[in-house]
Design a protein around this nucleic acid. Structure first.
Length: 286
DNA sequence: CGCCAGGTGCTGA
DNA sequence: TCAGCACATGGC
């Protein structure tokens, strides 16, 4: 057990905002995975209490994963440019964009397309149970996320039997790109947003939205602005009647919010799904 | 039961 | 470039 100073941070908002699919809350603690370790986390005020299955997991890993090194007040003030985002920030202040593993993020968001979060979580859990490695922490048992090698060799019908549906061949083909070195996934952390997105778009089952999610949640490209059905609803605030394509909304949002547009996206997404009062909901759509 | 879900790939204008 | 369509599956 160790403690991490976590000012300007909300574990709850961060882990329940749809950027990750493998954390679960039980009795006030969050159980999940970081690399190959199982973690149990609890936040009290500005302190994060951490229990890990692996003594190699340090305070620095926690700080990095939750992006506690970033100056959140500065980021939030840079995106706080209209009343809608202002309300979202007030409601979910402390939400941070995670620095997740690139491969896990890519694989997860291929599964996430045209899908709902409950089922995404189930699909990924079955994938891990069937092809990950067992890990445990005093009573809590789980499985690590399968490597690209573990998935690349599976028959498509095997992935379909885990409930992946038509995404099965996409995931397998993408795993093969990684294994064969045709998708240089380790390098993407060091190149810019545009290059990262272009590389990701070369994967089957990866379009604009998935590529932006992976760039943002897996490769620290904070200018990425994923547009899904919830963000289309959020963007009606700016374009109440005018018909806009997703590409149009994407370009507008990146200019409107600036270099940390991805943070704005995550606050708006979480706000649209959970944070609004009924008055706010009826003001624009849904 | 019908509708929806953190969309993508393909086709035809 | 853009609209329209098929696509698997399960929660609600």
């Amino acid at each position: 057990m160790f403690e991490v100073a976590a000012p300007e941070f909300s574990l709850q908002a961060t882990l329940s905002s749809g950027q990750t699919f493998r954390w679960a809350e039980r009795h006030g603690s969050w159980h999940g995975f970081l690399g190959s370790s199982v973690l149990k986390l609890r936040q009290e005020g500005d302190v994060l209490f951490c229990e890990s299955s692996d003594s190699a997991l340090t305070l620095e890993h926690i700080r990095r994963y939750f992006a506690l090194d970033l100056n959140l007040p500065e980021i939030l003030s840079s995106i706080d440019v209209d009343m809608q985002i202002h309300h979202a920030i007030l409601r979910h202040r402390g939400l941070r964009v995670l620095r997740q593993d690139g491969w896990e993020t890519l694989a997860s968001f291929i599964c996430a397309s045209f899908n709902n979060i409950k089922r995404i979580e189930g699909m990924i859990e079955r994938l891990c149970q069937a092809h990950g490695d067992p890990v445990s922490l005093n009573g809590f048992r789980g499985f690590s996320f399968p490597t690209p090698e573990a998935i690349a060799g599976l028959p498509e019908r095997r992935l379909r039997s885990l409930g992946l549906g038509y995404r099965a061949p996409y995931l397998r083909a993408t795993a093969r790109l990684v294994v064969d070195g045709r998708l240089p996934i380790e390098q993407l952390r060091r190149v810019g947003y545009e290059a990262t997105k272009t590389a990701l778009l070369g994967c089957e089952g990866v379009g604009d939205k998935v590529a932006d999610c992976v760039a943002l949640f897996g490769f620290e490209k904070y200018e990425a602005f994923p547009i899904d059905v919830w963000m289309e609803r959020a963007m009606r605030y700016y374009f109440r009647h005018r018909k806009m394509t997703r590409a149009g909304l994407h370009d507008y949002a990146r200019r409107h919010f600036g270099p940390y547009a991805g943070y704005a996206q995550q606050y708006l997404y979480h706000y649209m799904r959970t944070g609004r009062s009924s008055v706010e909901r009826s003001a624009y759509s849904v």
